[in-house]
Design a binder for these strands. Structure first.
Length: 465
RNA sequence: GUCCCCAUCGUCUAGCCCGGCCUAGGACACCGGCCUUUCACGCCGGCGACGGGGGUUCAAAUCCCCCUGGGGACGCCA
């Protein structure tokens, strides 16, 4: 059996989005699963809309997700001579022809056909006129058969068949001499020895005409696998209207790449009842047979759940480094990064994203807590003055300043004041964090240190009303 | 409009290919309880689906047909 070769072929007209990422992921997993090659090809034949910046962004997102490629990136814009050669070949063999219709004429015909309820397909005006009109601009069209049917067996959807008379004589070379997508994709897939074309559902309709071109080129057919679309909550194609669609925006929002990968792979693929997969497991278990046939709705809640799972179970050292980035993006400095794993340990059970964690932990990195008005009003009251003085008194003598020692201290305060835990802990929490929500005070006080703790309690004393 | 594809809880899905084990399983979300120094986590329980109609069969979520619904494609974009 020949070696599996698959490719991901994004067009660099924007960032890598969720749908593209899943297609890339499926290709990657399929390649790894079969010890094949994963090839990256940049489809930039549209020289007007393609940008190098988009290429960089896409590569970055791929790296972030851990989708490493074995070959490329190849740029189609650097292969124009190859395509032109192939166009000439088809022209010579009569499998393609020059078309002198202008785009204005075509637009008009298309519109009219639609209005009359006909399929808006090219009417074949230039099909027969074989002569070369000197000086007049032309496009090159692929001559597709007007009878018979083209059938292929999609690895995901099963047999798909289209009548050839449904197929247009599509343009394969523009007036300016540049080739178009449906042609270059075939030339390159042939040239690069692609064995399996795994791509989005939206290409199903292109497949029959591409098959015709494989045949015209005398090339063997690859297998095709069309993965279903990803929809938004309203069941229309996922777009910005449904929220963030850029892969890297999830990084910014504090998501872990393994969470996105895990989410994306389960959107459309399954392995019994299993929900959590490491990349290694995915490589071992992924198969196209278990990819579903119907479109799926992107569910941010489930992604969030997976993210919280990976935050809870991830390596604190690594999470600490990532947390640092988010803290710094908030404008906070981290003087002692070596404490970050301990900070992660404090918050990993309660925060679902690194962004949330950075916000929750921010009080540790500020000079003084940002007071929430409601919390201040409720707990920093004149009536609590005595309590705060007692707290300060005991904490000053708390030695060492550890979880257990602080806990013992608080117990003494409870005994002396006759207050319950909640009545003692909440005022401390507000004074220290500025809010009513945080990890255990026994945990946060030692992290903050005695000096800073007392400083904040003293400041609170000054705020009592 | 034409063509292609799809159809199990609100959502992702298992089961469907090789009909009976399905009074349809899991997960997210939601609701209730427990735990508790706040908020979470966690644990326990609950709600909740085979789109409709015809067949085939002793038996259909599973096979066939129609309808309906949804998505996609119809570019000198990819």
């Amino acid at each position: 059996m020949s070696k599996v070769r698959v490719r991901f072929a994004p067009s660099p007209t924007g960032y890598l989005h969720i749908g593209g990422a899943r297609t890339a992921l499926f290709n990657f997993l399929f390649a790894r699963r079969h010890q094949g090659a994963f090839i990256l090809r940049i489809e930039d034949t549209d020289t007007v809309r393609s940008t190098q910046k988009s290429v960089e962004e896409i590569l970055n997102a791929m790296r972030w997700l851990g989708l490493s490629w074995d070959e490329g990136p190849y740029y189609q814009s650097e292969r124009f001579s190859l395509y032109q050669e192939k166009v000439q070949q088809l022209l010579r063999e009569g499998k393609a022809y020059r078309c002198y219709c202008t785009s204005a004429e075509l637009d008009q015909k298309r519109e009219q056909a639609m209005a009359e309820g006909r399929k808006p397909k090219y009417d074949g005006t230039c099909r027969q006129c074989g002569e070369h009109i000197e000086g007049k601009p032309f496009v090159v069209r692929f001559r597709s058969p007007d009878s018979g049917a083209t059938t292929f067996n999609d690895l995901i959807k099963g047999p798909i068949s289209v009548q050839n008379d449904e197929l247009d004589d599509i343009i394969i070379q523009r007036t300016d001499g540049t080739p178009t997508y449906n042609f270059v994709v075939v030339v390159d897939d042939v040239e690069m020895g692609i064995t399996h074309v795994i791509r989005g559902d939206d290409h199903v309709n292109n497949t029959p005409r591409q098959i015709l071109m494989y045949q015209a080129l005398g090339a063997p057919l690859p297998s095709f696998a069309h993965v279903p679309m990803i929809l938004g909550a309203d069941k229309t194609r996922l777009s910005k209207r449904h929220g963030a669609t850029s892969v890297m925006s999830y990084e910014e929002m504090g998501y872990l790449p393994e969470a996105l990968v895990n989410y994306l792979v389960r959107l459309g693929w399954s392995c019994g009842d299993q929900e959590i997969f490491s990349m290694e497991e995915l490589i071992a278990k992924f198969s196209l047979e278990n990819v579903g046939r119907s479109a799926g709705v992107f569910n941010p809640e489930k992604l969030l759940w997976l993210n919280s799972h990976y935050i809870k179970s991830g390596d604190p050292q690594r999470l600490g480094r990532l947390l640092q980035r988010h803290l710094e993006r908030m404008g906070l400095s981290v003087p002692r990064p070596e404490n970050l794993p301990a900070v992660v340990a404090l918050f990993r059970e309660r925060d679902k994203t690194l962004e949330e964690m950075a916000k929750s932990a921010a009080f540790l990195f500020r000079d003084k807590p940002e007071m929430e008005e409601a919390a201040e009003k409720k707990f920093l009251t004149e009536a609590n003055r005595g309590l705060f003085e007692t707290i300060i008194h005991y904490l000053e003598g708390c030695e060492p300043f550890t979880h257990d020692a602080v806990e013992q201290c608080v117990e003494k305060i409870m005994a002396e004041t006759g207050l319950k835990m909640g009545k003692v802990a909440q005022p401390i929490r507000v004074a220290i964090t500025g809010g009513t929500v945080s990890p255990s005070v026994f945990e946060i006080l030692p992290i903050l240190g005695r000096e800073e703790t007392l400083k904040r309690l003293q400041s609170a004393l000054a705020l009592l009303k």
